[in-house]
Amino acid sequence: MTGNGRLPDESQDREFANAVSAAPATILAGMLVFGGVGWLLARWLDITALRPISLVLGLVFAGYLVYVRYGR
């Protein structure tokens, strides 16, 4: 195990393959985290509309995160 924080060669291909598998996971995670919080809030405050709103909010944040991490 000689990996002391240095990347191997061909890091471009590796980066791309990583990003392709990571981007949908990030978006799904964003929707799950925000949607989960919204689901709990909707149960607590008894406002059904919070569920779709939080889901869309999570989608927007996760999309922004993907843009910031991989899109620049």
């Binding site: 471009q12 978006i27 929707m31 949607g35 899109g71």
Partner: peptide
Amino acid sequence: LTSTIRTNMLLGFAFSEALALIGLVAPFI
């Protein structure tokens, strides 16, 4: 222009994949 194209390709992929994922979580609403 490979790296530029790849970056934009990735964004397009992520946002169209998001549509499928919306369908996946929609039942929980």
